[in-house]
């Protein structure tokens, strides 16, 4: 187990360097005029040009630049955005609200998916199962770029049930609608996976044993079937984190939440290289850590899995 975690951490380090390198290269290398690229569309003066060139070591070879950047990164210095703000400050603002949003989205999605998945797995081909099947198909068909503005318009603006924008220091309440929108991105697949896992486990021999033991139907489902059915769902959550991240870019934009997605989106459109690379680096780490946690959770749920 310890060796497994160690190996995974090593892999993470490699992945981290690879991913940051690619993003760094995409943002900085192969540009006709890196300085102009750094500044985006704005015209720049010669002195600005000189400052930028020095700050980003643009007169040195690319690999050297990358090295300087990584050195900064590893000592916690993310550098400065082209807007002049320190990127670490921007992160301190952006991450908490995004983490809140993502957590809320995952909790909502998982609760809905597992509850509905269990019910439709038990009563396959019943009314509830058929209705959820149609609903999940609808959700799967609606891309988030459509869903997010639509939800904001209907529930936020017209019906006024939720605040239409969240803003900085958003409350949990203000984040609820965006979280539902974001969660809808993953709820459909989670529900389908739960449903088929429950249906399959209900037919398992151990369920017959559990019933022969005189356990109540509720205990058979809630203790014996559920734990086994959650195994594939947990693995899915690892994959879903990636989906949630890309969904957050749209959702945060639409609901005006100054989180990671919001900053990334602005950074990409203004070609704010340092900003993008900085945020993506952390995103990569988050993604890798979450996946490691998911794998460990997987082993905790299924004792037959042994990592070595």
């Amino acid at each position: 187990m310890f060796r497994y975690i160690l190996r995974r951490l090593l892999q993470m380090v490699l992945t981290f360097f690879g991913a940051t390198f690619i993003v760094y290269a995409l943002m900085f290398a192969n540009q006709d005029d890196p300085v102009q690229a750094l500044a985006g569309d704005r015209p720049i003066t010669d002195s600005q040009r000189q400052i930028l060139t020095e700050r980003y070591h643009l007169d040195e070879p690319f690999l050297q630049q990358y090295r300087y950047y990584m050195e900064g990164l590893l000592t916690g210095d993310f550098g400065t955005s082209l807007t002049g703000r320190r990127i670490s400050d921007m992160m301190a603002d952006a991450w908490p609200v995004t983490i809140k949003l993502a957590l809320l989205a995952i909790v909502i999605a998982a609760t809905v998916a597992i509850t509905a998945g269990v019910v439709s797995g038990i009563r396959r081909a019943g009314t509830f199962d058929n209705v959820t099947l149609v609903l999940t198909l609808v959700i799967l068909c609606l891309p988030i770029v459509v869903l997010a503005p639509l939800a904001r318009l209907v529930f936020g603006v017209q019906l006024g049930w939720f605040p239409p924008t969240a803003g900085r220091d958003a409350s949990w309440w203000a984040l609820l609608l965006p979280a539902i929108v974001l969660g809808s991105l993953v709820v459909a697949t989670q529900l389908r996976v739960t449903r088929s896992a429950v249906a399959e486990n209900l037919r398992a021999d151990y369920v017959r044993t559990a019933r022969a033991k005189g356990l109540s139907g509720r205990r058979v489902i809630g203790v014996h079937v559920l734990r086994n059915s959650l195994i594939p769902v947990v693995t899915l959550v690892g994959v879903d984190i990636g989906n949630l991240m890309s969904g957050a870019i749209v959702t945060e934009g639409v609901f005006n939440i100054p989180g990671v997605g919001f900053n990334l989106f602005r950074g990409i459109t203004t070609e704010d290289g340092p900003l993008v690379v900085g945020f993506v680096s952390i995103l990569v780490i988050v993604f890798l850590v979450v996946n490691l946690v998911v794998d460990l959770l997987y082993a905790a749920l299924d004792p037959r899995i042994r990592y070595a």
Partner: peptide, 12 residues
């Protein structure tokens, strides 16, 4: 039951 491996719950 016949097959104790499948008749016992694998995760408990």
């Amino acid at each position: 039951f016949q097959d104790a491996l499948s008749a016992l719950n694998p995760v408990y």
